[in-house]
Design a protein around this nucleic acid. Structure first.
Length: 543
RNA sequence: GCUCCGGUAGCUCAGCUGGAUAGAGCAUCAGAUUUCUAAUCUGAGGGUCAUAGGUUCGAGUCCUAUCCGGAGUACCA
């Protein structure tokens, strides 16, 4: 319908010699204003220097619309044109959905294109925290949406296992190890105090009991890295997140990519030395201060490998690159993007999704957390407490740019107040009806169902809501905002529950109507299930 | 100081590129079940969309200024 109207109206605008780029179609908030509406007459009023009502009338005058799609239209003050879809069109969509099944909602925008989503990217210095969790689910859901839009998606995890932080981790592990041997120790300054390192130390002790203070720090470092990475990967698996590529920062050094960036920037005269460090003239690129790329110790700061990494991303030829990270890294990306720019590289296809922080609430109180100290809640603990489905839903139910209040009490409640169960119940409820229908001898026969019978108020509302699914996914894809999907699915579940309350599906005295309603529910269930698949949340048949 | 995010119902938040009478959940109050799962549904109350200007046919949405909350502003990542 949207495509049809767009085509027809554009053609008519061209015929009249009026601009076509202002054409917009939207779904009116209220059903009485039709199924689709355009404000084109008002948008053109200034250019054409005419009254919107007149424009609307002239536009619609000679426009012939297929009555199988558009039932009628109305022109309303101050100049809205409202279109009402025909009943045939509406019910025909049910058959479409039943034909498309598992593919309903898939788009072709990204066909033939590749996308990379980089997310999590936590260095292996400790278990994932609830903060990482938000990014994890956000990135993974975004990747799912892009993939439903036709993109070939690469999920990537970038990490660094060299440098100061990892050395500190090795030293912290060594201290814990020696502590187990009964030596009195002090953790290194700024070291890792988390209890998990004691567990890692025990594991190391079990494998290699004879290490001493003399043992190379590298041994501790690599043992810590391997152990912690396996902890991280198992957390990710528990919420169904699997990365395609783990990109090691070190490979950039080994391939000379770090030096290449320095050479290019030097050639452009954007570097200088001061106090033994190498500085990047970011002030010349419009920033407030210059930034250090190589410390006086000879070690690069995180910015330099970040630039080199993004240069590689560009070289790898993705059509779309999405970086997901937390608000605490907000300062990093403008430098990286402008570095790409001055190097003459493509950068417009790189999109950055930044999410704000997560606050855990328990009994209405904020759960205090501080990173790097022992005192944080891990993603694993959260999954233990509320389960994977709830974790996935709660993390993305709000827009990424808002702070997220994660209410543990609500999340744990297995009742109507919990949106996850509300949604899953809608799916299970349909399954239950199917089981019941079968018992009563009403076989599902959607092919022969008379869909014209689907014309009551709440039925039509449910049908319309269902048809929005592809539009919602497309909206998510365009805006790179995923929270529209859970909120849509919630509305769809509401429409289903209302329908259920209002009408009886299985009615042996009206087998034709029952068949039509069963066909409708089949389509609704397909839609719910597909939506839950994108969110990677279970769609139970029974609760 | 500067940069970024937010400020919408008692609470938590939606509101797509500016559109028609600003929505949902929770909480409060009042109802619905001899019925396909009440993990559901119906109804009511509740708003100067932080504040003040501006842009225009029209602003919660765009611009400017101010106030409040959060994040960042390292030779940490």
């Amino acid at each position: 319908m949207f495509e049809y109207l767009t085509t027809q109206l554009t053609a008519r605008l061209e015929q009249l010699g009026w601009p076509t780029d202002r054409l917009q179609l939207s779904r009116p908030k209220k059903a009485e204003n039709g199924d689709w509406a355009s404000n084109i007459a008002m948008a053109l009023a200034r250019d054409l220097k005419r009254a919107p009502m007149q424009i609307a009338e002239e536009l619609m005058d000679d426009l012939i619309l297929d009555s199988g799609i558009v039932d009628k239209y109305e022109i309303l003050n101050p100049g809205f044109i409202n279109f009402f879809q025909s009943a045939d069109y509406l019910t025909a969509q049910v058959r479409n959905i039943l034909n498309e099944k598992d593919d309903f909602g898939k788009g072709d925008y990204g066909n033939g294109k590749t996308a990379q989503v980089e997310f999590v990217s936590a260095n292996p210095t400790g278990p994932l925290t609830v903060g990482h969790g938000r990014q994890t689910v956000l990135g993974d859901t975004l990747a799912n949406i892009l993939s439903w839009s036709g993109y070939e998606v690469t999920r990537e995890y970038y990490f660094n296992n060299a440098g100061r932080q990892m050395r500190l981790l090795g030293e912290s592990l060594k201290a814990r190890y020696l502590e187990l041997k009964g030596e009195s120790i002090t953790l290194p300054d700024g070291g890792y105090e988390g209890r998990y390192l004691i567990e890692v130390a025990k594991a190391l002790m079990a494998e290699q009991p004879d290490l001493t203070d003399e043992t190379e720090i590298d041994l501790f470092k690599s043992f810590a890295e391997a152990s912690i990475f396996s902890i991280i990967k198992s957390s990710l698996e528990r919420i169904n997140v699997v990365h395609d590529v783990f990109y090691n920062e070190r490979s950039l050094y080994e391939a000379g990519k770090i030096d290449e960036v320095l050479d290019i920037l030097k050639e452009k005269d954007l570097l200088y030395d001061k106090d033994g460090a190498t500085w990047f003239k970011t002030t010349e690129l419009g920033f407030e201060q210059d930034r250090v790329l190589v410390k006086s110790s000879g070690e690069p700061t995180y910015r330099l490998p970040d630039i080199a990494y993004h240069r590689e991303k560009v070289a790898r030829g993705f059509d779309l690159v999405v970086d997901v990270f937390g608000a605490d890294h907000i300062d990093a990306y403008p430098d990286v993007l402008s570095a790409l720019k001055v190097m003459g590289l493509k950068h417009e296809h790189i999109q950055v999704v930044i999410h704000q922080f997560v606050t855990l609430l328990r009994s209405g109180e904020v759960v205090k957390m501080s990173t790097r100290k022992a005192n944080f809640v891990t993603l694993d603990e959260l999954i233990d407490e509320v389960g994977a489905d709830v974790v996935r839903y709660f993390y993305i139910m709000r827009s990424a740019s808002s702070h997220l209040n994660f209410d543990l009490d609500l999340a744990k409640r297995q009742t109507e107040e919990n949106p996850v169960f509300y949604l899953q119940y809608a799916h299970a409820r349909i399954s239950s009806i199917f089981r019941r229908a079968e018992e009563r001898g009403l076989a599902s026969d959607s092919v022969n169902a008379d869909l014209d019978l689907l014309n009551e108020e709440f039925t039509v509302a449910l049908l319309n809501k269902m048809l929005e699914f592809p539009e919602v996914l497309d909206h998510c894809r365009r805006s790179l905002e995923v929270h529209h999907l859970p909120s849509y699915l919630f509305d769809l579940a509401t429409a289903l529950h209302k329908f259920y309350t209002e009408y009886k599906v299985i009615d042996l005295e009206k087998p034709e109507l029952s068949k039509a309603r069963l066909a409708l529910l089949e389509a609704v269930q397909v839609t719910l299930r597909n939506g839950l698949r994108v969110l990677d949340i279970n769609a139970p048949d029974q609760m």
